[in-house]
Simulated scan of single mutants.
Amino acid sequence: MRSILLATATLVVTSLPVAGQPAQRLRTEKAEIIVETVAGGLNHPWGLAFLPDGRMLVTEKPGRLRIVSAEGEISPPIAKTPQPSIQFLDVALDPNFSENQLVYLTYVEPRGGGLATAAGRGRLSTTGTTLEGFEVIFRQQPASPIEDHFGSRLAFTPDSKLFISTGDRDEPDSAQDLSTHMGKLVRVNRDGSVPADNPFVHRAGVRPEIWSYGHRNIEGLAVQPGTGVLWAGEFGPTGGDEINIPKPGGNYGWPLVSWGDHTDGRVIPRPPTRPDLTDAIYHWTPSVSFSGMTFYTGAAFPAWHGNLLLAGLASQALIRLTLAGARVTGEERIPMDARIRHVAQGQDGLLYLLTDEDQGRILRFKPGG
């Protein structure tokens, strides 16, 4: 479906606040919103997970994990996180966190003269100051010297399987190579072992963790409420950002086909030319460059219930998609005047956004009317 037929625009009434300034208002198609700055001074915050008491675990790209309270109090960096690491990326809680206190992280690991996406888990101490017993549960193979396209979102499905996204590391052909984890969506058990029903588990020469392939750089994962189905969003090259519903063993085409072209101007065949490959359910050209995403299920914005929300980087927007089953029926772009790295729903039903800046902020959306 061509997104430009559905795209709409929304006016920002006032500029976004900075820490210590009054909240501001946004008028959108379906809701009037108050935007508050919960916290500032975070160095390129990337991942966000809510603890049961409403506090937030937040990763910063330079390799820090912090706890932020609902009032905006920021903890010192949590100790005993994976080292060495050149970047921290996503964070998620174990489905049984209330019993085991396990926290999962993805990060960029130096290895053998190169870099690779890795995932691990540790137990958050009762004081919230350390991540005890951290263990690596997944390492992308192989490492690459290229410092780009790490993917790295985490999502648990209702059966407690863990999905980890990886990028093609700016080596496009690797996305079609099943002997590597590059450009793949990976599915593992909570301890990193391989589920017996993964699609390639018995195929020689194939990485058994692979769920789907032909992806460029997945930075958005979200499980649809009610269905338990995983949705994924990935960056295109110049145009061709995509939303997919990855199926086991599915080939999503990169770099054989795309709705965008290579950055050096080389034309890529369009998906309809290869019906043997799986096309996106929605795409953008030009790119909106979105990262984290979530389905909204809260009561604070009833007109948004069931909508898919996307955090826009280059587009500097919160993008709201209306859905009918697996079909996108409408799009609204809410300008934010900042690169938005992630969007998540709190237990309070409010929305929390991370801005991708040296002095990054946590923004909170509240009803304004």
Rank of each mutant, 00 (worst) to 15 (best):
T322K: 14
E71Y: 09
A196I: 01
V12N: 12
E135N: 09
R25G: 02
P145K: 11
I362W: 07
G239C: 11
A196F: 01
L321Q: 10
T285H: 13
F50N: 05
D276S: 13
G240Q: 08
R203Y: 05
P302K: 02
D348H: 10
Q101D: 13
P110A: 10
T117N: 00
I281A: 06
G214Q: 05
Q224C: 07
V12C: 11
R121Q: 14
Q141K: 13
L51Q: 12
F97R: 00
Y352A: 14
L89C: 09
D264F: 02
D173W: 03
S160C: 06
Q224Y: 01
L310M: 11
V201Y: 00
T81W: 02
A19W: 08
Y104Q: 05
L308V: 10
M336S: 04
K61R: 15
A311R: 06
G133R: 10
L65W: 07
A280S: 15
K366W: 01
L313D: 00
S69L: 03
L124Y: 05
M336F: 13
Q140D: 02
P17T: 13
F290N: 08
P237C: 07
Q345E: 15
S315M: 08
K30S: 13
I34L: 15
A324R: 14
P82T: 04
L124H: 07
L178R: 14
A338Q: 14
G214W: 02
A23M: 09
M182V: 01
H181F: 04
W284C: 06
L102D: 08
L5R: 10
D197A: 01
T106F: 08
D356P: 07
S3Y: 02
F163P: 06
S152N: 14
T322W: 08
M1L: 10
L185D: 01
G122Q: 09
R153T: 05
A196C: 00
R361N: 10
A39E: 01
I33V: 15
S315K: 11
L350N: 14
A311F: 04
R64K: 14
I268W: 09
S258I: 11
A143R: 05
A204Y: 01
Q21Y: 02
L102T: 04
F50E: 09
E109P: 03
V38T: 07
T329A: 05
T294Q: 14
A299E: 15
L321G: 04
R361P: 00
L115T: 04
I245K: 06
S69M: 02
H181M: 03
R64Q: 13
M336N: 00
R203C: 00
G114T: 02
G54Q: 09
P110V: 09
G72F: 12
F365L: 15
I164Y: 03
V267N: 07
N189T: 03
T106L: 12
A299H: 12
Y104P: 06
G167W: 05
P22W: 07
Y213L: 10
W284R: 06
T278E: 13
L115Y: 15
